[in-house]
Amino acid sequence: MFEKCGFAVEGTLCNFEPAPTEEQRRNGLQLAPRSIIGALVPEDVPGLPWYADVARADDQGTSSAVSVNGVTERGWGRTLPS
């Protein structure tokens, strides 16, 4: 998902998540053996068409929904420069 949004792949961790318990497996939990680590740095922001909407919603203190490449997210926190 984050690659579609313009985040850079920083690395891949193998077997990073603990193995699910038997109860978690019975309840449908499935974990991938690899975890992809991504990042968004200030230099990436100018090339992201969705970023201005996210920053504006955050600056207004709203939790409005923002659609990024067809995926709608709600409740943004301040983690990127505006």
Rank of each mutant, 00 (worst) to 15 (best):
G28C: 00
R56T: 10
E43H: 10
Y51M: 11
E22L: 05
V45R: 01
P81S: 13
M1H: 01
E73M: 14
G38F: 14
F16T: 09
F7A: 04
G38V: 15
E23G: 06
P33C: 09
S64I: 08
G70S: 00
G75D: 12
G38W: 15
R34K: 14
D58L: 14
G77S: 15
S82H: 15
G61S: 03
F7R: 03
E23C: 05
V66F: 01
R34N: 15
T21V: 03
Y51C: 03
F7G: 00
A57Q: 05
W76A: 02
M1S: 09
A65V: 09
G47T: 07
T79W: 10
A52K: 13
W50R: 00
R78V: 11
G28L: 00
W76V: 00
G47Y: 00
A52Q: 03
L80W: 02
E3V: 07
G61C: 03
S67L: 08
F2S: 06
E10T: 05
E43T: 09
P18S: 10
V45A: 03
P81T: 12
N27S: 03
V68P: 01
V71E: 13
M1P: 00
W50N: 01
L29C: 04
N69P: 08
F16R: 04
E73N: 13
R25I: 10
G61V: 04
N69W: 14
K4R: 07
A52Y: 03
Q30L: 12
G75R: 04
P46Y: 05
V9Y: 08
G70Q: 04
E23T: 03
C5A: 13
L40Q: 07
A39F: 10
R25P: 00
M1V: 07
G28W: 00
A52D: 08
E73C: 12
G77V: 11
A52E: 13
F2G: 06
M1R: 06
Q30D: 08
N27W: 02
I36C: 09
S64P: 10
I37S: 14
E10G: 04
P46M: 07
V45F: 03
N15D: 12
P18V: 06
E73T: 14
P49E: 12
A65Q: 14
E3S: 03
R25D: 01
E17A: 13
L48E: 04
E73G: 15
M1G: 12
V68Y: 05
S82I: 13
D59T: 11
D53C: 04
D53S: 06
L13W: 02
Q24G: 00
C5S: 08
C14I: 15
R56K: 05
P42G: 07
A32W: 07
R56G: 08
A52V: 11
C5N: 11
A8L: 10
